[in-house]
Amino acid sequence: MKSPPIQRGLTLSGLVLVLCGASAQVTTPQAQLQRWQAAAGQSGQAPRGQEFFTRRHGGEWSCASCHGQPPTTTSRHASTGKPIQPLAPAFHAERFTDSAKVDKWFKRNCKDVLSRECSAVEKADVLAYLVGLK
């Protein structure tokens, strides 16, 4: 027997919610720092992270161009003007709490700033800096 259209829609919606929820990997900023330190084989260094965050790396933008310096208040994207919530976890509780989002934004933003992906050392350093902001 064929399901009514509304029931099929609800079943499909439920499946989408389950699949989306399953892909979200709940984490903490400290766990993300530990993850990238393990990948780098060394501890993240907050001073290096701050320097990396504020430097332009030969391009037009730095991380601070969009996230502000220090990244503890709402800022605006350098080209679109779209508001960006504080990046430092102590100032925005949702930061670095979803591994998939962390990976997505590191990849996208590093390519914008460096024209390449960030290394594990660079990620560990930036996270050490951001986690240390209080």
Rank of each mutant, 00 (worst) to 15 (best):
M1R: 01
K2L: 08
S3C: 01
I6K: 08
Q7H: 07
Q7W: 08
R8Y: 06
R8D: 03
G9N: 11
G9T: 09
L10C: 08
L10T: 00
L12P: 03
S13D: 05
L15F: 12
V16I: 15
L17N: 00
V18I: 15
S23R: 14
A24T: 14
A24S: 02
A24I: 15
V26T: 12
V26Q: 09
V26F: 11
T28F: 04
T28L: 05
A31V: 12
Q32R: 10
Q32L: 06
Q32M: 14
L33H: 14
L33Q: 10
Q34H: 13
R35I: 11
R35K: 15
W36H: 09
Q37T: 11
A38W: 10
A40C: 04
A40G: 09
A40N: 04
Q45F: 09
A46N: 11
P47F: 05
P47N: 11
R48S: 04
R48E: 14
G49S: 01
G49Q: 07
E51L: 04
F52E: 00
F53H: 07
F53T: 05
F53K: 01
F53G: 00
T54V: 12
T54Y: 03
R55K: 13
R56E: 02
R56Q: 05
R56N: 13
H57T: 06
H57D: 09
G58Q: 06
G58C: 09
G59K: 06
G59I: 04
W61T: 09
W61V: 14
C63W: 08
C63G: 04
S65R: 11
S65F: 08
C66V: 04
C66T: 03
C66G: 02
G68F: 03
G68T: 06
Q69N: 15
Q69R: 12
P71D: 08
P71N: 00
P71S: 07
T72I: 15
T73M: 10
T74M: 13
S75W: 04
R76I: 11
H77E: 14
H77Y: 05
H77P: 04
S79M: 15
T80P: 03
T80Y: 11
T80L: 09
G81C: 01
K82D: 12
P83H: 02
I84P: 04
I84E: 14
Q85S: 10
P86D: 01
P86M: 05
L87K: 00
A88C: 06
A88D: 12
P89R: 10
A90E: 12
A90D: 04
F91S: 05
A93G: 13
E94F: 09
T97M: 02
T97H: 08
S99R: 11
S99M: 14
K101A: 06
K101D: 11
V102Y: 09
D103W: 11
W105G: 00
W105N: 10
F106C: 06
K107H: 14
K107A: 14
R108I: 06
R108V: 13
C110D: 05
K111Q: 06
D112N: 15
V113P: 06
L114R: 07
L114F: 11
E117H: 14
C118M: 00
S119I: 10
S119D: 00
A120Y: 12
A120D: 03
A120G: 10
V121L: 13
E122Q: 15
K123N: 11
A124F: 13
A124R: 03
A124C: 07
D125I: 11
V126E: 02
L127Y: 06
Y129T: 07
V131L: 10
G132I: 14
L133N: 07
